[in-house]
Design a protein around this nucleic acid. Sequence first.
DNA 1: AAACTAGATGAGAACTATTCTCAACTAGAA
DNA 2: TTCTAGTTGAGAATAGTTCTCATCTAGTTT
Lengths: 145, 145
Amino acid sequence: MDLRPHAHDGERLATACREAGLKATPQRLAVLKALLTSREHPGPEAVFRQVRGELSSISLATVYKTLDALEAAGLVERVTPLSDGRRYDANRTPHHHLVCTTCGRIEDHEDPALAPPVPPQLGGFQARSVRVEVLGVCAACRREA
Amino acid sequence: MDLRPHAHDGERLATACREAGLKATPQRLAVLKALLTSREHPGPEAVFRQVRGELSSISLATVYKTLDALEAAGLVERVTPLSDGRRYDANRTPHHHLVCTTCGRIEDHEDPALAPPVPPQLGGFQARSVRVEVLGVCAACRREA
DNA sequence: AAACTAGATGAGAACTATTCTCAACTAGAA
DNA sequence: TTCTAGTTGAGAATAGTTCTCATCTAGTTT
């Protein structure tokens, strides 16, 4: 279900929550609406500020919990799936990363065929490099499950 | 210069630092060596633990500063360029992100031609989704510079 | 419609990751 | 050898995120 065209329609959002097994609370609807109407890829703090306008009593902790819940339900996505702490790599040859969403392990994957070319210019945006992350489950975690 | 084949050769690493305009301190060489010999994409804490083995007096703050310096010098890369806080997106249609490395703004970019197919299986790794991030400088930041 | 209950919320404390500050130190230049 | 800009170590400070728990409420049951 694409929620965007009807972002202002509370009942649709409520239904989406319920279908995902979440209670349709005013807080959740407000957070969801804020994300649906924003183009800024906001973080928790920004969502909090935005939502406070219509729900002045909401707490920051609730925003965090709500974002987690909406993400787990697949209604919202983290632009930064790897954002739990930094990770470094000294391998300077072009390669992709296979990120295990279960254990967090990151494997290098060199496959020139899969490598997208660095696009030169996209609109007014000047590209420098491209990163590709493949999210999934690694061999070890699959064995356990 | 690819440093990996000679990761044990201190003088090569020292030269690489100097060429990048950094003093070749034992701390830097140790951090660099730790990254070059690891396949784990370690974070600052892991590097710290590793490096302590040979340089017991090194401090965590130095590891952070060193990682920043090596990254700025291009000797090392952050696997997680967007890791300064979480960002969310409710746009569930497939698209890329154009990430401005100057101001941090993230733009959506829908371009089916550029979209890589989700690979089914890579070795033992079961892929679920692919993310593509294009790093560069946005129009607004280019105007200022 | 009223009662019930699992799940959700708010507030602040707690925790973790990261950055800052600054005096002491040292690599590399002169 | 001397000099100096850049670097380090230690701990304090800050920022981001999670936890705890008493209270509340959405949705279900009666």
